[in-house]
C-alpha cells in the first residue's frame, strides 16, 4: 500500500503531539502544569474545530470517529481551562483527566485513519 497522509492523519498527528505535551507535565509541579494548561486548552479547542471542518467529505464510519474525537478534545479543553486556576490535588486530577480525554481523541482519530485506509483498499 502506498503511503497516504491526508488531513485526518495530520489531525491524528496533532492529537498525538498534544498528548505528548500533557504527558510531559504529569511529573512536574503544580505551577508547571498550570502554566501549560492555557496553551493545552487553546490547542485542544483549535484541533476540535479543525476536525469538525473535516466532517463533510468523510464516510459514515470515519465521520463518527471524528465527531467523537472532537467531543473528547472539547472536554479536554474544559479540563485544561479549569486546571489553569485550580489548586491542590485538583491540579493533578484534572491534568490526568485531560490526558485521558486527549488519549481517547487520538484513538478515535486513529480509528478514523484506519477506516479511511480500509476504504482506499476497497476502492
Amino acid at each position: 500500500m502506498s503511503k497516504v497522509r491526508d488531513a485526518v492523519e495530520e489531525a491524528r498527528s496533532d492529537a498525538q503531539a498534544l498528548h505528548k505535551k500533557i504527558l510531559g507535565t504529569t511529573a512536574k509541579d503544580h505551577a508547571a502544569i498550570r502554566a501549560s494548561a492555557r496553551s493545552v486548552a487553546t490547542e485542544a479547542s483549535e484541533l476540535a474545530r479543525a476536525i469538525r471542518g473535516l466532517l463533510e467529505n468523510q464516510q459514515a464510519d470515519a465521520k463518527q470517529h471524528l465527531k467523537d474525537a472532537a467531543s473528547s478534545l472539547d472536554a479536554a479543553a474544559t479540563d485544561a481551562q479549569y486546571l489553569a486556576n485550580a489548586s491542590g490535588a485538583d491540579v493533578k486530577a484534572r491534568n490526568l483527566a485531560a490526558l485521558g480525554r486527549v488519549r481517547s481523541a487520538t484513538q478515535e482519530l486513529s480509528q478514523a485513519v484506519a477506516a479511511k485506509r480500509a476504504s482506499l483498499i476497497r476502492a
Binding site: 500500500m1 502506498s2 503511503k3 497516504v4 484513538q107 486513529s110 480509528q111 485513519v113 484506519a114 485506509r117
Partner: peptide, 8 residues
C-alpha cells in the same frame, strides 16, 4: 507507511 494502523 499505511500498511497497518496502530492505535496504541
Amino acid at each position: 507507511e499505511g500498511d497497518v494502523t496502530i492505535h496504541g
